[in-house]
């Protein structure tokens, strides 16, 4: 909507707001540029040892070399596959289990202590068991990813289901709704914002899971590159992989945020 007559004060206000936003962007970028610049400078002046700390130019070269060798896309695709598969299974299964626990209060009460224990347990401790059970391949990594993501997914979703306004449930009951209808018409659409936050949390969890899994068993992937790079003291490789990892995780999070904008059209 465009208004014809915007008052002078209003224009001034808008200008001030835009100026502030611009300033924030400039400062943000400045931090990054400054950080990279100082890092590079210190490395070039030999103040810090770039063998241990690496430096931006070397990282860029490493990324380019990996790309030219065709191994960059390969390693990315391996990790991405593990992460996405684990993420999807964890999210779908977690949602289903949470719905089941919402449906049956008794099941919820019975299973509550188990969920609490599984939530507190550092899943990495199960590493050896997973290797024995699933072998030392993709299966083990995906399993680790699921294990790390699913508990939080269940807990977040269940809390969302349980937070649905009791009066809204009462309203549907007075209309003669059965439990299935309450679930379809109220609980599932009403917890959509929770689903989005659950997806956001699970994105982070899935990356932890897949990288941790790769630390344990893999022969390829970004996590593998990081561990390998660390072992042979190729810090350029470690840094390069870490930066790519950062970018991928951010991209996946951004996709969920985009989904949020598409799905949720009303104000919460």
């Amino acid at each position: 909507m465009k208004k014809e007559n915007v008052s002078k004060q209003h224009l001034l206000y808008i200008k001030k707001l835009k100026k502030e936003n611009l300033l924030v962007w400039i400062l943000r970028s400045l931090i990054l540029v400054l950080f990279l610049g100082v890092w590079e400078l210190l490395a070039r002046l030999n103040v810090i040892d770039s063998f241990i700390t690496s430096c931006p130019s070397k990282i860029a070269v490493t990324i380019y070399t990996l790309f030219a060798e065709n191994s960059l896309l390969y390693h990315i695709s391996v990790t991405l596959y593990e992460t996405l598969l684990g993420f999807l299974i964890a999210v779908v299964l977690g949602y289903g289990i949470a719905l089941l626990l919402w449906w049956s209060n008794r099941a919820k009460r019975v299973l509550e202590p188990y969920i609490v224990v599984l939530n507190s347990l550092p899943k990495i401790a199960l590493g050896p068991i997973i290797i024995v059970w699933c072998g030392s391949g993709t299966k083990a990594i995906v399993f680790m990813t699921i294990l790390i993501s699913i508990i939080v997914a269940i807990i977040t979703m269940l809390n969302g289901f349980l937070a649905i306004d009791k009066d809204k449930i009462l309203l549907l009951e007075t209309m003669g709704a059965n439990k299935l209808q309450i679930m379809q018409k109220l609980v599932i659409p009403g917890s959509l914002p929770t689903l989005i936050s659950m997806l956001k949390i699970s994105v982070g969890m899935a990356w932890i899971g897949s990288i941790m899994g790769e630390y344990l068993v893999s022969r390829a992937g970004l996590g593998y590159l990081i561990v390998y790079g660390g072992q042979v003291f190729k810090l350029d490789l470690v840094m390069a992989s870490t930066i790519i990892l950062c970018l991928l995780a951010t991209l996946m999070y951004a996709l969920v945020t985009l989904l949020e904008r598409i799905v949720i059209k009303y104000k919460q």
């Binding site: 007075t174 009403g190 919460q268």
Partner: peptide, 16 residues
């Protein structure tokens, strides 16, 4: 319940 309409304290309109 077919013949009964219930109105609550808050409007309880579904925001979505």
């Amino acid at each position: 319940k077919e013949q009964l309409g219930y109105m609550l304290q808050k409007d309880q309109l579904f925001p979505w």
